[in-house]
């Protein structure tokens, strides 16, 4: 199975180790993984800022880079949602391209969705011991129905004790450029999220989207919490060594 890894602009620049954790997981599942070098960003920041034109250009770029793979896997529900849901919407009026985008959309998966539903990874390469709480990022949850998948994978790790927080599906306040444009509001939302995380007394918070995780980590640290670990689900499932 030939997999194209779209690592996402955030993982690429901020947390390469999440990219390597993703590679380990895909290899553990028997996939042959390719990383197109010219990949940049899926276009969502522009799209959500009203710049559909650039979003379309980046969608075409993505298509040319990834169309040839059997599957495309992305360690982010937000970027995967962009490709699965919004790329086709952008080309609604261009039938030939729409067909190609619908086709690539069907083969594009958020990481945990792919591991759980497509390759059905039974044994996780990583080990993790301790209490963990999970934040459901909005796009993965509401655009891709990613909720059970990360939990099912975590349940296959003997050392993991999942402690659910209240309102795990409420937005953490990241929202891309929203987090800078409406910083005060965004901070209050992340504060609520941090409170719910702290209430679980879990040693770590995991999630499937780095944007949310940076937001959560940033608020936890500013609040003086330097102990709660903030990890991408790939880092838990694959283990942190690289």
């Amino acid at each position: 199975m030939r997999i194209g890894l779209f690592v996402t602009c955030l993982v690429d620049s901020m947390r390469p180790k999440i990219g390597f954790a993703t590679l380990r997981l895909l290899k553990a599942a028997g996939c042959v993984v390719f990383v197109p070098e010219s990949q940049t960003c899926c276009g969502q920041p522009g799209y959500n800022s009203g710049d559909s034109k650039t979003a379309k250009e980046l969608a075409l770029k993505f298509l040319s880079e990834f169309e040839s793979f059997d599957y495309i896997v992305i360690p982010s529900g937000s970027c995967a949602g962009m490709i699965r849901v919004h790329y086709p919407a952008l080309f609604e009026d261009e039938p030939e391209l729409l067909d190609r985008f619908l086709n690539i959309a069907e083969r594009t998966f958020e990481l945990t969705d792919f591991l759980h539903r497509i390759v059905r990874l039974e044994k996780m390469p990583g080990t993790f011991r301790g209490r963990l709480t999970y934040h459901d990022s909005c796009s993965g949850l509401r655009e891709l129905d990613v909720y059970k998948q990360p939990r099912a994978l975590l349940a296959r790790m003997p050392g993991v004790v999942l402690k659910e927080m209240v309102e795990s599906t409420t937005c953490c306040g990241f929202g891309g450029t929203f987090s800078v444009k409406y910083g005060e509001l965004s901070t209050r939302m992340s504060d609520n999220k941090c409170r719910h995380i702290t209430e679980t007394h879990a040693g770590a918070i995991a999630g499937g989207d780095l944007g949310c995780l940076l937001n959560i980590e940033g608020r936890l640290r500013r609040n003086g919490d330097h102990d709660t670990r903030v990890l991408h689900i790939a880092e838990i499932l694959a283990g942190e060594e690289d």
Partner: peptide, 22 residues
């Protein structure tokens, strides 16, 4: 990006991009 940093720290990047390291 004071909108971010007025209320939150910004976790620093690792120092190299994934594609460089890959």
């Amino acid at each position: 990006a004071s909108g971010w940093t007025d209320g939150r720290d910004f976790p620093a990047p690792e120092g190299k991009t994934f594609r460089e390291l890959y």
